[in-house]
Amino acid sequence: MCLFCKIIDGEIPNKTVHENEEFLCFHDINPAAKIHVLIIPKKHYDSFDVIKPELMANMTKFIHEVADKLDVRENGYRIITNIKEHGGQEVNHLHIHLLAGEYVGRLVGAKK
């Protein structure tokens, strides 16, 4: 069983921000910004590469709810998902990082 499945099952404690029947959002234990949360589906999917578009539609709505709950929509936030080894994925369970609460930089090559 993967790390995030153990969190979902309650075997590993977390600081929950928001949850519903399909998704869970909790604080990252190694934050890269003032606000750094992880958003995961409660059903195991290895990565973004294997999900159906319907799941992302539901996840988008959930991410909006999280952003509202954290009060970060006005100033902005970054969402990131890493896919497989070359994409930097460390836990093989689909997860979205939401970073906010301060300027979180810009992507390489992006114009400011």
Score class of each variant (00 low, 15 high):
Leu3Gln: 05
Leu3Met: 09
Phe4Val: 08
Cys5His: 02
Cys5Val: 09
Lys6Tyr: 08
Gly10Asp: 05
Ile12Trp: 10
Pro13Trp: 03
Lys15Gln: 09
Thr16Ala: 03
Asn20Ile: 04
Glu21Tyr: 01
Phe26Leu: 00
His27Val: 03
His27Glu: 00
Asp28Gly: 02
Asp28Ala: 00
Asn30Ser: 02
Ala33Asp: 01
Ala33Pro: 08
Ala33Met: 02
Val37Trp: 04
Pro41Met: 00
Lys42Trp: 00
Asp46Gln: 09
Ser47Met: 09
Ser47Ala: 06
Phe48Asp: 04
Phe48Ile: 04
Asp49Ile: 07
Ile51Val: 09
Lys52Met: 11
Lys52Leu: 13
Leu55Ser: 11
Met59Asn: 07
Met59Gln: 14
Thr60Ser: 15
Lys61Tyr: 03
Lys61Val: 15
Lys61Ala: 15
Ile63Gln: 12
His64Ile: 10
His64Gln: 09
Glu65Met: 12
Asp68Ser: 10
Leu70Ala: 10
Leu70Asp: 12
Asp71Pro: 11
Asp71Ile: 13
Asp71Gly: 04
Arg73Gln: 13
Arg73His: 14
Gly76Trp: 15
Gly76Leu: 04
Arg78Glu: 11
Ile80His: 11
Thr81Val: 15
Asn82Leu: 13
Asn82Arg: 02
Glu85Lys: 07
Glu85Ala: 13
His86Gln: 14
Glu90Val: 11
Val91Met: 04
Asn92Lys: 10
Leu94Ile: 14
Ile96Lys: 01
His97Val: 13
Leu99His: 02
Ala100Tyr: 11
Glu102Trp: 15
Arg106Ala: 12
Lys111His: 11
Lys112Ser: 13
